[in-house]
């Protein structure tokens, strides 16, 4: 492919947009990343986080060191991120998102999301994924996790599986509200999870879920 002036312009716009988006997210949410049990490493990583808002992966991305951001792709729902030219620009050009179909690939010939993620991991990308499979818009702390995480852990044993808890973004912009409120958000990263030998799907998923919930701050847990 010949790099046309237009695609060069698009690339520059994408870089500037990513600064603007990260800057605005930091200003608005005061987001800070807290690492416990591990630090940010230039190793291939699958970050799995709770999902309450479309801005979640921006926050996670903003708290990664800049050199790791370029290696890390969010997994995003095609139906949402390809619905308009602006969203497509943000999803594909700015964040280089891996687009998946959330209807589970019921349409004939549609690629299976878990296979797509496996391929991306095997080609060396780091990924941000939301194992609940959908946005949690209710009062539930964390929805049941889909089995995709287990299949990825089995298919890619060398990838670090880092649980992440994103705090407060649901309060910044609840579903259906127009004005975001500037609350401080925290992205907490936990110790990597390893699939034990012979560990079955149910046990592993339960462990992953517990690892995510354990990252919540004390004052959130107290309200259970």
């Amino acid at each position: 492919m010949n790099p046309s002036p237009r695609s060069g312009l698009r690339k520059a716009a994408a870089v500037v947009s990513s600064w603007l988006i990260v800057g605005a997210a930091k200003l608005l949410t005061g987001v800070r990343g807290l690492w416990s049990g591990t630090g940010p490493k230039a190793e291939q990583t699958l970050y799995f986080a709770n999902h309450t808002s479309h801005g979640d992966f921006v926050l996670l991305w903003a708290t990664l060191p800049p050199d790791l951001r370029a290696l890390t792709r969010p997994v995003a729902g095609q139906d949402y991120w390809e619905a308009s030219a602006l969203r497509r620009f943000i999803g594909e050009d700015v964040f280089n998102a891996l687009m998946i179909r959330r209807d589970g690939g019921t349409a004939a010939g549609a690629p299976n999301p878990v296979e797509q993620m496996t391929q991306a991991l095997q080609s060396g990308d780091s990924l941000i994924m939301f194992p609940e499979g959908t946005r949690n818009t209710g009062d539930e702390t964390l929805l049941p996790l889909k089995s995709g995480l287990f299949h990825l852990a089995r298919a890619c044993p060398n990838v670090r599986l880092v649980p992440v808890w994103i705090e407060n973004l649901k309060r910044v912009l609840p579903k259906g509200m127009l004005v975001p409120i500037p609350l401080a958000c925290t992205v907490r990263y936990g110790a990597p999870l390893v699939l034990a030998e012979g560990e079955d799907k149910t046990a592993f998923i339960a462990r992953a879920r517990a690892a995510m919930l354990a990252l919540r701050p004390e004052y959130d847990k107290a309200e259970d």
Partner: peptide
């Protein structure tokens, strides 16, 4: 921001 981030609030308070 620090105060509100720690306070218990609900959707209706937005």
């Amino acid at each position: 921001r620090e105060f509100m981030s720690l306070a218990y609030t609900r959707r209706g308070d937005h």
